[in-house]
Nucleic acid binder design. Structure first.
Length: 477
RNA sequence: GGUGCCAUACCCAAGUGGCUAGGGAGCGGUCUGCAAAACCGUCAACCCCGGUUCGAAUCCGGGUGGCACCUCCA
C-alpha cells in the first residue's frame, strides 16, 4: 500500500518513503500547558492520530513523539511580552508547576477521550533543559549565535536557506515596519536562550553558560526530536500557523547545529477549525470551546472525532452546533448500522487470512483514499457505502469495517455509552415504571387508545418509551 | 503592503479532464398496532465572464466574494 502526502517542503504531493524501511520517526508539536486545549487545537491532534494510524495500517512501526511544553516562553520573539505559564499562574493564583500539572492532566484526558493513540514518547520541555543547552552551544560554537544584553540570538543571516521553507522573501520582509528590532540584528532573528534580569527571579529558570535564564521557545522541539528520534525526522507535523515562524526556526537551528543534515523529510500541516463568524479559535481572543463543553452539551468525544473525519486535514472546517449535530447523527447512525455487521463477523470465526476478491475491491478503495494525502473523509465515505452494500455478507462487511477502524479509531467494536440521562429519583422512577407497566398491559390486550394515552402521559413527564423485542425501555429526555 | 488559500445542492463535504462520492436534513415508501431504529427510493450543485479541448466542477486568463499567515497560536 502506497502513501502519498502533501509535503509543505516543496508544496506538492509526494510518495512517502521512510528513511529506514518499515520504521517512521514522527514528531508532532504538542501543547503549551498554560490553559485548556480548545477543540481547534484538538482537531490537529485528531488529524495527526489519523496519520499515525494510517502509517501503522500501512505496516510501519511509528516512533511518535509529542512534546508537552511546560516552560513559559515569551508571547513574542522580541524582548517584551509575558510568559504564558506565569500568566496562567497569576490568573489562577497557583505556581507555574501546578499550572503545568493541572493542564497536562486535562490534556491527556481529552487525548484519551478522543481515542488518540498514545505517542511513543511524551517529552516535557523542562526534562530536556541540558539537551537544549547543548544544542544552543553547538550553534554558538559554529558561529550562528550572538549575544545581546538580554539574550543569545540566532543570526538568521548566517543561514542562507532561512526563508526557503516558508517562502519568505527576505528583502521584502525587511521593508516591514511592524517588527521592532530591539537589540536584534535582523527582524527574523530569534532567541535561543533568554537571560533573566539580575534583579528579578523567574518561576522557571536554569543555570546556563550564558547566565541564569530559560530556553527560547523553538529550541525544545529541535532538542527533543533529535534526542528521541534522531537528526532527521521522517515526518514533522503541526498547524499551518507554525510554518512561518516556529518550523522555519526549528529548521534553521537544527540544520545549522547538525552541519546541514536535513531536519525533516516530510512536513504535514493541519488547517484550522473556524467558527461560523470566520474566526479561527484562539485562546488569546477570550472565549473558547473545550471538549468538556461539548460533552456537557450531550455530545460524545467520538462525535467530535467523527466530525473531524468529515473534512480533509488541509481544509478549513467550520464549527457550528448544527454542523456538529449533523456529524453526531451521521456517527450514531453509522454505529447502529455497523454494530450488527461487526457482531456477525465476530460470531462467524472466519479465518481472516485471505480476502475474497469482491472484498478486495473495497479494501483497495479504502486504502487508495488513505494514500491520497490521507483523505479520511473519502475513506469514511467508502466505509459508509460499504455498510449498506448488501452484495457482501454481513460478516465480511463487519470484518472490513473493523479492519478500517484501526485507522478511523471510532471503537466500532464497542457500543457508545448512552448520554448521561437526567437524574431520576426512586419515587419518580417507580411512578414511571408503573405507567410503563400499565401501558404494557394495555398493549397486550390490544387496547391501542389506552396505550397511546399512556405514552402521551409519559411524554408529558419527558419520558420516551421505546419498544424492543425484549420489552419496553424508557429514558428521560 | 507582502505571501498563500478557498468558492460544489437546504447544510456539511469528497472530487484535480470523460467513470452515481458520502453523510445530515427534507420528501415518498417498506416494516414494526403507534412511536423509535433499520431498510429502500427520491431530490438537487459545481460563484461570474472569457479561453483551451471532441469533452471542463476539474486546466488557463480576468472578475467578484470570503479567509489565513506575516505578533503568541494547532
Amino acid at each position: 500500500m502506497k502513501l502519498h502526502f502533501h509535503n509543505t517542503l516543496g508544496r506538492k504531493l509526494q510518495e512517502f518513503e521512510s528513511l529506514e524501511p518499515g520504521r517512521v520517526g514522527m514528531y508532532c508539536c504538542g501543547p503549551t500547558v498554560y490553559h485548556y486545549a480548545h477543540i481547534g487545537n484538538l482537531r490537529t491532534y485528531v488529524n495527526e492520530d489519523f496519520l499515525r494510524r494510517a502509517l501503522e495500517y500501512a505496516g510501519y512501526a511509528v516512533n511518535h513523539v509529542v512534546n508537552i511544553t511546560d516552560v513559559g516562553h515569551l508571547t513574542s520573539d522580541a524582548d517584551d511580552g509575558d510568559d504564558k505559564m506565569e500568566k496562567g499562574a497569576a490568573r489562577e493564583g497557583r505556581t507555574v508547576w501546578e499550572i503545568a500539572a493541572h493542564y497536562t492532566e486535562a490534556f491527556l484526558r481529552d487525548w484519551q477521550r478522543l481515542n488518540l493513540l498514545q505517542p511513543t514518547h511524551w517529552p516535557k520541555a523542562t526534562d530536556y533543559i541540558p539537551q537544549q543547552i547543548s544544542l544552543v552551544q553547538e550553534l554558538e560554537s559554529r558561529g550562528y549565535a550572538y549575544r545581546t544584553s538580554d539574550a543569545l540570538y540566532f543570526d538568521t543571516e548566517k543561514f542562507a536557506a532561512y526563508g526557503d521553507f516558508a517562502g519568505i522573501k527576505m528583502d521584502k520582509l525587511l521593508a516591514g515596519v511592524r517588527v521592532d528590532l530591539g537589540d536584534k540584528k535582523n527582524p527574523t532573528d530569534f532567541a535561543l536562550w533568554k537571560i533573566s534580569p539580575k534583579d528579578k527571579r523567574r518561576a522557571m529558570e536554569w543555570e546556563s553558560p550564558w547566565g541564569v535564564g530559560f530556553p527560547g521557545w523553538h529550541v525544545e522541539c529541535s532538542a527533543m526530536s533529535t534526542a528521541l528520534i534522531g537528526k532527521t525526522l521522517d515526518i514533522h507535523c503541526g498547524g499551518t500557523d507554525h510554518i512561518r515562524v516556529h518550523h522555519t526556526n526549528e529548521i534553521a537551528q537544527s540544520e545549522c547545529a547538525h552541519d546541514g543534515v536535513p531536519f525533516a523529510r516530510f512536513w504535514l500541516h493541519n488547517e484550522f477549525l473556524k467558527t461560523e463568524d470566520s474566526d479561527k479559535m484562539s485562546k488569546s481572543s477570550g472565549e473558547f470551546l473545550t471538549l468538556q463543553v461539548l460533552v456537557d452539551r450531550g455530545f460524545h468525544a467520538l462525535d467530535y472525532r467523527y466530525f473531524c473525519a468529515t473534512a480533509h486535514y488541509r481544509k478549513f472546517l467550520t464549527f457550528s452546533w448544527p454542523n456538529l449535530e449533523s456529524a453526531r447523527d451521521a456517527h450514531r447512525a453509522f454505529r447502529r448500522r455497523t454494530a450488527p455487521l461487526v457482531a456477525a463477523f465476530q460470531a462467524s470465526q472466519v479465518p481472516s487470512a485471505t480476502l475474497p476478491g469482491d472484498a478486495k475491491i473495497w479494501q483497495d478503495r479504502f486504502e487508495e483514499a488513505l494514500g491520497q494525502d490521507l483523505n479520511i473523509p473519502k475513506a469514511l465515505g467508502v466505509a459508509q457505502t460499504l455498510a449498506r452494500e448488501t452484495a457482501l455478507t454481513e460478516a465480511l462487511r463487519g470484518r472490513l469495517l473493523l479492519d478500517w477502524d484501526r485507522v478511523l479509531g471510532l471503537s466500532l467494536e464497542v457500543s457508545l455509552p448512552e448520554p448521561e440521562a437526567e437524574a431520576v429519583d426512586d419515587d419518580e422512577a417507580a411512578r414511571i415504571d408503573a405507567l410503563v407497566a400499565a401501558r404494557t398491559v394495555a398493549r397486550e390486550s390490544k387496547n391501542w387508545p389506552e396505550a397511546d394515552r399512556i405514552r402521551k402521559e409519559l411524554a408529558d413527564l419527558k419520558v420516551v418509551v421505546t419498544d424492543t423485542p425484549t420489552g419496553p425501555t424508557w429514558k428521560k429526555a
